[in-house]
Design a binder for these strands. Structure first.
Lengths: 95, 95
DNA sequence: CTCATGTGCAACCTCCTGGTTGCGCTATTG
DNA sequence: CAATAGCGCAACCAGGAGGTTGCACATGAG
């Protein structure tokens, strides 16, 4: 759609997707099946989230044998930091 | 829905809404009818965008007589700055 | 007072999104 | 080689998002 900013914000708007970013930041790498254990949804749903994150350039994948491992891109890691900052900025400013 | 971050990102995901933020930042204040002149949509559509921006806490309104004037909140102004930074960050990193 | 201007509310439509199920293919393992 | 684990693709569904039209209500201007 040639609206990179919109894709990024759209990707970050979903809480499950932000959680995925958090998990990937903590683990470094994970497969869709692994992440399914952490989220209340099916593997295919997780795979879709990973796909939109990849479209937004926040995540990249690499097939290793029969599994596909995902990790944060540089932009994704930057956003993981910004998310932490924004969260504390919110709770600080709330009241 | 008690997902403040999600509301903010959702609001920023739409290009028309980001444009509205830009206009408000430039003009300081505007009504829905005024903004309709700048965007290819009806006044009601603009009003909806302003409502979601207000729900996200990026914009606030004040009724003056028969018109309702909108302006950026502090958070909205901060995001207007962050948007500029992100855009140049993108065009810098792209290529 | 009358009338035009500005607004808000509600119904409606279309398309996208988050999620599901089902199936078939690929690659490891025993 | 056979069985299984992991993945991708496609169809499908309910609900929300972006937008429209139509109308009723309030307020300032003449």
């Amino acid at each position: 759609m040639s609206d990179p900013l919109g894709q990024v914000f759209g990707a970050l708007a979903d809480p499950s997707r932000r959680q995925v970013i958090g998990y990937l930041s903590a683990r470094g790498t994970a497969t869709a099946t692994e992440l399914t254990g952490e989220l209340p949804m099916t593997r295919q749903a997780v795979a879709k989230h990973l796909a939109t994150l990849a479209d937004a350039g926040l995540v990249e994948s690499e097939r290793q044998g029969r599994e596909t491992r995902f990790r944060l891109t540089e932009a994704g890691a930057e956003w993981d930091d910004r998310l932490d900052a924004l969260r504390s900025h919110l709770t600080r400013h709330r009241r």
